[in-house]
Design a protein around this nucleic acid. Sequence first.
DNA 1: CCTGCCTGTCATGAG
DNA 2: TACTCATGACAGGCA
Length: 605
Amino acid sequence: MMEMGDSNQDLDLIDILWKQDIDLGARREVFDYNHRQKEHELQRQRQLEEEKKLHLLREQEKALLAQLKLDEETGEYIPHTKPILPPQQAVVSIEISQDANFTEETGDGMSFDECLQLLAETFPVGETENPSVCMELPPVSVYPSGTMMPSEQPALSPAVLPNPLTPPQRVTPDLEEAWMEILSLPELQCFKMQVDETMEATNFPIQTSPQVQNPSYPNNQLFPNTPYYPMPSASDLKTKNLNVGPGEFMNTCDGPVPSMAPSDISQINVEDPQVNPNFTPDSFCSSVFYPDTIVEESSSQHGHEESENVSEIPSKPSFTPMDLYTLSPEDVFDRSKRLPADFPDSDSGISTHSSPYSSSPSKSAYGGGSYNFSDSEMDDLDHNPGSAESDYSEMFSLNFQPEDLELAKPESEQTGQCKQLDKKPKQHMEDPAEESGHSGTPFTKDKPKKRSDVRLSRDEQRAKALKIPFTVSMIINLPVDDFNEMMSKHELNEAQLALVRDIRRRGKNKVAAQNCRKRKMENIVGLEHELDLLKEEKERLLDEKSKNATNLKEMKRQLNSLYLEVFGKLRDEKGNSYSPSEYSLQQSTDGSIFLVPRMKKTFKI
DNA sequence: CCTGCCTGTCATGAG
DNA sequence: TACTCATGACAGGCA
């Protein structure tokens, strides 16, 4: 019912517009011809309206009967036991429901074929012999092929179209309005809605900003609202924008979708997903760098290990025999207390197990007693005056008391004490000459002492050999100022100074190397994780691209069908249809629709 | 004995 | 300028 009213209003409006065209000087014969068609059209519309009214009445009767119950005794229809609406109200409700259904159909739920069918029903003329489509569709202007507007021309304004021979018959504004109304009818709106839905379903960014639209194609003024497809070739885009005939629709799937529809359709701006700058930047960027978990783990690990160091730093040096050997107790205590606060080695955490803090004291007690001078650098010491070894056994008392060790070691180290104890025979095995009759077989299954421990002991032994009055841990880990202060308190010769500097350098470099390797491993792990994320992202994007391509193809197919449908309804003044191979529909900047001949190479003025 | 891994050390450049 | 740190390269130990 409402549809009928709208259609009638539209037809009346078109009629009025045509009458205005008469005033504007439209040719008489055209009007008369169209007027006859118009009357015929109105007659058909009335017939359809009557049929629909009859159908509606029948539906109402059915509905009423459905709400009544046949009284078997009297043979009469009586209302149902359940409350029902009064007949008049029921009719209204039925109408509403039907309207609702119709609205649904013309809305989102309407298929494209239904839209076309509605279009055909609303404009049934011009199907075969009836060329009265000119009544509904504006008498499109026919441009000579030579005036096909190349993209270089500023605009498709008929006023500036240069052809004195056959000046383009500009569609009058009223006719334009009628044309726009036709294109904006619900029958065509459904197509727009379908296009919108398709766009939304494909997650295409819809841009309406004029600055963004067609930024690289300033000459594309023939279709200013043409959806912007960042396609590889701009020139290709230009040419295809000018030729929007139906033949190109299916052949230009990679090209722009021509916009011969009203601007509301053409406002859709489709960007190539591959070029889409909005392509999940956040997630991607967040995945580019190390995951937070890794960073947190690393930092927490560092913090934890630093705390371990903090816990163990104060206790270690104070009970080292070297300290007792050279430093006064209060001096050692003060330095040890100061260590955790201003300990500069922020990356020392990685080497908890092998850092001088953990290894130096115990190794001094155990490994130090092994006299393992296998390192070539220690050869000189080996050949050196036995004072070194004697002093060593003297200072790092072989009669070491376990209680002292436990006091000197942090709890974390104490747990591995047995392991450390087991390493001692291994050192003896490494140097059979030093074996004192102990059988190494019972300890062979135990893990031998680490090289770092051996190296530490070497440095310690060297320091001991040169009578360096500091612990290796202090030499390595003291801040520069404290280290210099400590050095200044003792008169050291060149050899001692060089050794102290080497010990400090090697110790710090060892920790640095450990941290460097740890970071390298973390980088590898992080990159592997990032690689996995990127693979997943690639998979997802490929899937999305495939879906988008499918949707775009379907959309172009529908657009092509609609184009052909609309084009097929166009008639010239004689009622003949235009050939899609010779003409094409184009839209100018102001939304006007033109029927433009296709470019012919052999054009002559 | 060979090989791969781990670790320490050196050299070097950057801060 | 000295120092510290990071890192590649090399070598030794070990399974």
